[in-house]
Design a binder for these strands. Structure first.
Lengths: 254, 254
DNA sequence: GCATAATGTACGGCGTGCCGAACATTTGGT
DNA sequence: ACCAAATGTTCGGCACGCCGTACATTATGC
């Protein structure tokens, strides 16, 4: 449902991969020492892990050289990071746990959580964000939402509910009062609900693959200087879209 | 906050201990074969684990003899089982996951979850059960509840909120219309909220130790023939009370 | 350029946790 | 009471994952 990559990595190797991923994000090159410091293991342990990861073709590794991720490795690392973020989001946004504690807990649990449960966490956060005034239907509505809407993927009732929610809200519109737009017109930090996906190409496919059908919450995470490309968060995935792709996606702003 | 026992057991040994605990519950005597079947490991692996547990004085073990838990072992096992149940309850009652999937997930995660997060799960379930019609205050109320009420332990505001909830409900009273009682008068399956703990002895202490102050949800799980003893579930713990102890605890029925 | 510090690696060792095979003990049928 | 079958144990072996030490390579200051 939510995972596209499974490498059957041990928890330990996943940790190494995630650490490399984050270090590369920060400094563009990973050194054994940094990895060791981050994971609190000795340098010799790092070398061992690097061999294991290289053998699985997840990293580009040559002795004494800098370490980078292969495409495959980046995909796996992103999946691990996604699990981490979904968990952390849930802890922070739903359980009202402090950011640091949430991160620490997510670290420990990200290897043990089954995909099905992870999806539920994700859905729950989305539900809370969409539906902060659900009244007594709150929890029952969530059950319905999980059992019916998500599975069909069509989510017709869901869209209705969500749009009703949106309409009934007095606050929460975009700053300038717009209520509908294409994804390409959205600004940094704005949230919306997908209404229609007009494109026919790869983007439509990619969105559908990750379960982002009509009714799905989308959030703008980063916008390049001229609005191209635009980075959005959908269902816990981070996705970069070209402007012309984004404009084919109609949304209702929340 | 919520744990009283920490043995620093490996996840594996915790699994063995929990398995023994459950088997003893069912059949009053654990055999290596059953443990192995339950955990899907070979008999020889079981023997090894038993040695480790015996060395830590968690089980009574003699070669070729039946296996029972020591008091210490039972305490640890109950704590593990509690973690399992809190997780499962959360998955079932909040995330609307099926019982079996919830159990499986709880099995995997019960070793990785920090106590602080576990407490939040527990509180969340209680909150949902107490407050099913919270309106838009729902999620904010939970944050408040976690941050203020629980920490003080006094929970005055919480009691007010809860009692208001109870009063405003049209359904949910006990079958015979009672709305308040002592714990000793409650029947199987009834739920209530603690209003006052009059006793001074060990029970009061035990309840306070486990965080069960006024405002805490309590549920009757089992009642012996003449109402003595009575087994209740409080904050994820299972507690057996004598009738005279239970009568000192005033509750509002939900 | 060269010495020295910083960093990376190889190797042997340790603890955990699992297995299968061989051996020991108990159980159950007769 | 005795012989199988079931069950329990021991032992050696394997895979992980970590460490410290010693050695190899690269980086840095002069």
């Amino acid at each position: 449902m939510s995972d596209s990559v499974q490498m059957d990595l041990s928890a330990s190797l996943e940790d190494y991969l995630e650490a490399i991923f984050r270090i590369v994000q920060e400094k563009s090159a990973a050194r054994a020492k940094d990895i060791g410091k981050r994971l609190k293991v000795s340098r010799s342990s790092v070398t061992g892990a690097l061999h294991a990861l290289a053998q699985r073709e997840l990293i580009n590794y040559a002795p004494y050289d800098l370490i980078t991720l292969t495409d495959k490795g980046r995909a796996v690392a992103e999946d691990v990071a996604r699990r981490h973020e979904v968990l952390r989001d849930f802890f922070v946004k739903v359980l009202a746990v402090g950011r640091e504690d949430a991160d620490e807990a997510a670290c420990k649990m990200e290897h043990a959580i089954p995909d099905a449960i992870l999806d539920r966490f994700l859905d729950f956060v989305e539900f809370v964000e969409r539906c902060p005034r659900g009244g007594s239907k709150w929890i029952k509505g969530f059950g319905y939402y999980c059992d019916n809407d998500n599975k069909t993927g069509n989510c017709e009732k869901c869209v209705e509910l969500v749009l009703d929610e949106v309409r009934s809200r007095t606050t929460g519109k975009a700053a300038d009062g717009r209520t509908s737009a294409s994804l390409g017109e959205m600004k940094l930090g704005e949230k919306g609900v997908i209404v229609r996906i007009s494109g026919t190409g790869g983007i439509r496919r990619r969105l559908l693959d990750m379960g982002a059908t009509a009714g799905t919450l989308v959030e703008v995470e980063r916008v390049a200087p001229f609005g191209d490309p635009i980075e959005v968060k959908i269902k816990g995935y981070h996705l970069t879209l070209r402007k012309d792709e984004a404009e084919r996606i109609a949304v209702k702003l929340i």
